[in-house]
């Protein structure tokens, strides 16, 4: 009887220690990435053309994925909003303008980042995780290369840039698909629909800030998960899973924080 609470206390203690250890690791990777990006990366022996290669891997190879998913989401959003607005009074004229505002302010960058968290986050963790379990990371350290500088920093640059770019492409796809849905299902004139009058500079600033923040968070979280991989194929699988869930969650939390800050700053004007 007396053993039970002691054992659960021990396991609680062990889990707390694990958590502390994990968080310390995350902070270390994040700090290493940022300081690497600002200071050491450009001075050190950086792998040539790596940023371009990562931009291709993260950007080009996600373009279709992002545009297809955002396109579908755009159609659904317009469809549902039209259903809602036609229930009470005919507010179809406002749908396009409001949709554009929401797209720029939140849905475009956030949903693009959710998609990138699954595709890019999983990819980065899988790649770095496999290197970890096959002892390639240790080999890097033996040749006096910092793994964070070598592996995460180029992905960091590429991902920040590409999240912004893909967000814009995603928004465009979503906007176009939404416009088509409005026209074909609810007879909204494209001229009425494609209306940017509700989009203020503040919306663009906030939306792009989100894109940059997501783009920074995904490689850091995914790289952190990859570097913590242990064991063999199970370890890589677990790291990849953790990266997907971790970076998706990071996107949701950052979205909330930045949106709240925006609301405090601009208030009703937003």
């Amino acid at each position: 009887m007396a053993l039970v609470p002691r054992r659960s206390l021990t396991s609680l203690g062990a889990r707390t220690l694990d958590l502390v250890d994990a968080v310390t690791d995350l902070v270390r990777v994040a700090a290493g990435t940022v300081s690497g990006a600002v200071f050491t990366y450009w001075r050190g022996t950086r792998p040539k053309g790596e940023i371009a290669r990562q931009m291709h891997a993260i950007g080009n190879r996600s373009l279709l994925f992002v545009m297809v998913t955002l396109g579908f989401v755009g159609m659904v959003m317009v469809y549902q909003t039209c259903l809602l607005t036609t229930q009470v009074v005919d507010g179809r004229g406002q749908v396009g303008a409001q949709f554009a505002r929401l797209l720029v302010l939140d849905v475009g960058p956030s949903l693009t980042a959710m998609m990138l968290a699954t595709r890019v986050g999983a990819g980065i963790a899988a790649e770095i995780g496999s290197m970890k379990v096959t002892e390639q990371i240790d080999a890097l350290r033996m040749s006096a290369v910092t793994p964070v500088d070598y592996l995460i920093v180029p992905r960091f640059f590429a991902c920040v840039l590409m999240t912004v770019v893909l967000s814009i492409f995603g928004m465009a796809a979503s906007w176009a698909a939404g416009g088509l849905t409005g026209y074909y299902s609810f007879q909204i004139n494209p001229r009425t629909f494609f209306d940017l009058s509700m989009v203020a500079p503040a919306h663009v600033v906030l939306g792009m800030t989100k894109a940059v923040a997501y783009g920074a968070a995904i490689p850091i979280v995914a790289g952190w998960c990859g570097l913590r991989a242990r064991g063999s194929s199970e370890g890589v699988g677990a790291a990849t899973t953790a990266a997907v869930i971790g970076s998706s969650f990071a996107v949701i939390v950052l979205d909330f924080i930045i949106s709240a800050i925006g609301l405090i700053f601009w208030g009703a004007g937003l």
């Binding site: 595709r119 990819g123 899988a126 995780g129 063999s232 194929s233 699988g237 990849t240």
Partner: peptide, 10 residues
């Protein structure tokens, strides 16, 4: 192998 597992999850 291990690389394949990561790719499959992705």
């Amino acid at each position: 192998g291990a690389v394949g597992v990561g790719r499959a999850v992705n």
